[in-house]
């Protein structure tokens, strides 16, 4: 049983800010703790920027989810960019191709409860994250 999703395009810097704000609003609505809200919004910010910078833009989908015991949020970041050739390497702390700190992907993974990545060179990348209420 899931509620309706909200979608946002990610094609400009401003869109990254909008993604952060949407995720924050939904995180408050599902009653994540303050620290968990902060972790989720930070992860969303990292991944939305990846979608923009590495994926050449894409879309973000935010959904409230429920299982038997608790509520949570699922966020999907999808782009049709070049994809990631070496996933293990991309998930290593400190590895970067974009001149950043190389913490985006690996760091974001540590901030959420579920992290799933689906990528194919030349086709694009879809990353799904979930954060559950405690």
């Amino acid at each position: 049983m899931n509620d309706e999703s909200q979608r946002l395009p990610v094609v400009t810097d401003q869109d990254v800010v909008r993604v952060r704000q949407l995720v924050r609003t939904v995180a408050v609505a599902v009653k994540l703790s303050l620290v968990d809200q902060t972790k989720l919004v930070t992860a969303a910010s990292e991944l939305a920027r990846n979608t923009l910078v590495y994926g050449g833009g894409g879309e973000v989908e935010v959904t409230r989810v429920h299982n038997e015991r608790r509520g949570g949020i699922r966020i999907v970041f999808a782009d049709r960019g070049p994809g990631i050739a070496d996933l293990d390497l991309a998930l290593t702390d400190g590895y970067t191709t974009g001149g950043g700190l190389g913490l985006g992907l690996s760091g974001a993974r540590r901030l959420v409860d579920e992290f799933d990545i689906d990528t194919e060179p030349g086709k694009g990348t879809t990353i799904t994250i979930v954060k559950w209420c405690r």
Binding site: V35, Q37, T38, K39, L103, G107, A108
Partner: peptide, 14 residues
Amino acid sequence: MRPAVAITLVELGL
């Protein structure tokens, strides 16, 4: 820096 931000940065590895 807010506590929640500091905790998140530690987890992020920054």
